[in-house]
Amino acid sequence: MSIEPIGLSSWITAIVTHLETSEPSAYARLVAVVGARRARITLDGDTVVVSVVRGRLMVLPGDTEPVDGEGGSSRAAVLALLDGRLETSIALREGLVYARGSVESVGRIFHAIEIVLDVSARSPALRSLAAQYRAVAPPGSPVSGGRSSPVGRELELLDRLGLIGS
């Protein structure tokens, strides 16, 4: 019987632990991608900072300063993404998922997420964790609560990068 993580810090710690156990090489890539940078992650107002400390990926208090980038979303948006009801490009366009920082930092935040998603295809433990996350409470309300949508030049940039869905 697994213990259900409580709070964003516990969820991220569980993801990192399962990732390292499932595919140590992927964990090493994740550590390399994060490097010496710090990212502030927010989910529905629950905020933590993620960084590598003494060679290990750690979750730090949300008010840790300074950070190189930040990103966030809502539980509703994450569930919609997991269920295939929301495309990443739409989530970005609508501000339901956001990332801020230098191009380098934002790129590394998304690279780190991709490593986790990729390993989840081969890791029963990560898939089980996703099922637990879904089971904590039903999706409930439709996707909402995103930050302000990107506008003007941001939309032009997303369009140029092919990140805006039709």
Partner: peptide, 15 residues
């Protein structure tokens, strides 16, 4: 596009 986690991983295949 399903499953959603795999769709997010392969956003370049959305079109």
């Amino acid at each position: 596009r399903i499953p959603g986690a795999m769709a997010s991983l392969h956003s370049g295949r959305s079109r």
